[in-house]
Design a protein around this nucleic acid. Sequence first.
DNA 1: CTAGTTGCAAAGAGTTTGCATGGCG
DNA 2: CGCCATGCAAACTCTTTGCAACTAG
Lengths: 136, 136
Amino acid sequence: MGKYMTNQRRVLLGYLESHRDEQLSAKEIAESLKQDGISQSAVYRNLSALEADGKVHRFTKGGDRESYYQYLDCDECHGQLHFSCCGCGHTFHVSEKVADVLSQALSFGEHFSLDKEETVLYGLCGQCKKKAKVTK
Amino acid sequence: MGKYMTNQRRVLLGYLESHRDEQLSAKEIAESLKQDGISQSAVYRNLSALEADGKVHRFTKGGDRESYYQYLDCDECHGQLHFSCCGCGHTFHVSEKVADVLSQALSFGEHFSLDKEETVLYGLCGQCKKKAKVTK
DNA sequence: CTAGTTGCAAAGAGTTTGCATGGCG
DNA sequence: CGCCATGCAAACTCTTTGCAACTAG
């Protein structure tokens, strides 16, 4: 983050930590923190700083125009492969075991090296898969 | 696409076909077709129509704000998994064999079903991997 | 002819930035 | 104190849209 630990930053970090399993749009975050007297620009500026520090991951979904952010506090999270469910919108961490299988398959099959941090897989999670079947 | 085959549409389709291996931003496309007297709005409108028809794939890269498009003329392309190289910017089609390995691993390991059409993998292609090593 | 297309410019949505003010260390 | 962070509003970028003119079928 920046150099000074201001109140806004404490609040933003707290908010992100308590929503670490969700993918949050900047708008949502700004909306939620408005009540704490934090301006939109502070939210954007601090999110950018956090992104530069590698503390949050910024990405875009499908054909969406807004950016989403997700907290990456733990070291385990860092460099992890993410899976985003198109049904419920939840983001999951793909286990290292599976991520490695993917990575290896790509490497041997195509000579590509996978950037786990940048990549977001899309599809349906287990629960939404069930729902989809029932609905049909 | 739409109902009438206008000249603009012919030109746009031709352009997309001849760049089928690249991921093109709407801006780039509009820029290139400006010389053919095609307006920005026609480009956007026709790209949307093509997307609705499933003839092009629209997606966003990493934390980028603009949309990218890629032509999907052949049936093989449709529903294929894409890999985008962060080094050279090229988009590759991941072979079905490898895509299936990934899909199966995700399914068994995490109970997720992969949406190949929506997903774009990021990393380095074979060539850029070599270059990266040499540079170091 | 008539409904679909186009160009233009203006409107939108999301994000960034300039500048004066305020606050951490 | 000095520099960094903040708020506000204006600027920016990418994309969409309203409207009148145009055109493929």
